[in-house]
């Protein structure tokens, strides 16, 4: 959680004042600390920082006149960004919209599940264990397979469509397969554990005596939830929403398997086809970079807004 929340803290934030004091002890402690983070630092350098620079460089390559397919020359072609943004901004916006809806849906489904297991069933270890395994169980089957299964669920002959048609929630000839709805269902389902588990981990430590204190002080069950439980579980909610939103907005499997090729294309699919089919490495790299920056901006704004300052 701390790692995820880090962007929220400006460099000279709360910790800065403490760092100034207690010099010698602080320095010695600091040295051990640096040694301990060294392996992680090297790993990040090799497998994150360097690739990001390589990606940035690739995104600025140009195709020399008369070059073969897949041949590019190093350059500073910022025009690549304008080109891909001009062509693919709808897919980019759609990706964030789908990811947002899926994150909201996962929160609405995941929070109550986490609450049930962590708070309501507290002390009943066996039942808790079984339910936790059930939450993780989808991960035991392949990602592709369980996404494919949603096709069956949402098919015209499946269990859902006839019911919705009978309830007139869907027109008589309405379908769910190959729609935005199907893609969002897939995203929600596939990332649900990423939402549920961080919230569970947080609620598991919730002091239920605070809930009792709330009701002792005239707060109804819902008011206690709104004023005590939810604010205290915000670190879990933030972690869960980030772990859902970030991968969901870059996802391409759900849209490829459950969507159509008219109005459900997500940015991940575009990057995929730019890279593997069109062999437009600079375009794919520029899109990847844009996606990364956009997520960074959105996440920073989000954590600033709901961030950790209010939390213990």
């Amino acid at each position: 959680m701390n790692v995820l929340a880090a962007p929220a803290k400006p460099a000279g934030g709360p910790g800065a004042a403490e760092k100034a004091g207690g010099k010698t002890l602080q320095r010695r402690r600091g040295r051990t600390g640096y040694l301990l983070i060294l392996p992680g630092f090297i790993f990040m350098l090799l497998f994150f920082v360097l690739p990001v620079f390589s990606l940035l460089a690739t995104s600025l390559y140009t195709k020399p006149p008369g070059a073969d397919i897949g041949q590019f020359a190093p350059a500073l072609e910022f025009g690549n960004y304008a080109v891909v943004l001009g062509s693919y901004w709808p897919e980019l916006l759609r990706s964030f919209a789908f990811a947002l809806v899926a994150t909201a849906a996962a929160l609405l489904i995941g929070y109550p599940m986490a609450y049930l297991v962590a708070v309501r069933l507290r002390g009943r270890k066996l039942l808790q264990g079984i339910l936790l395994v059930l939450i993780i169980a989808p991960f035991f089957t392949s990602f592709i397979l369980r996404t494919q299964a949603w096709k069956q669920i949402l098919a015209d002959e499946g269990p859902v469509v006839p019911v919705l048609r009978a309830l007139s929630l869907l027109p008589a000839d309405g379908r769910l397969t190959a729609t935005a709805f199907a893609v969002v269902c897939g995203l929600t389902y596939n990332f649900l554990p990423f939402m549920t588990l961080p919230i569970y981990a947080n609620l598991e430590r919730l002091d239920t005596r605070l809930i009792e204190a709330g009701s002792d002080l005239y707060a109804s069950g819902f008011t206690t939830f709104r004023t005590v439980t939810l604010p205290l579980s915000m670190p879990g909610v933030i972690a869960g929403t980030l772990l859902t939103f970030i991968p969901a907005s870059g996802d391409y499997v759900n849209a490829a398997l459950l969507g159509n090729n008219r109005d459900t294309t997500m940015i991940g699919q575009v990057i995929d086809s730019r890279f593997f089919r069109v062999v437009d490495y600079p375009g794919a790299a520029a899109l990847s970079f844009i996606l990364m920056l956009a997520i960074l901006v959105l996440v920073t704004a989000y954590v600033r807004r709901f961030g950790t300052k209010e939390l213990i």
Partner: peptide, 20 residues
């Protein structure tokens, strides 16, 4: 009746102050 409806308040053994 439930706790929030009672004209009773408690000073809890561990205080149970809202940390946030």
């Amino acid at each position: 009746t439930s706790a929030h409806e009672r004209p009773v308040n408690t000073v809890f053994q561990n205080y149970a102050l809202f940390p946030h």
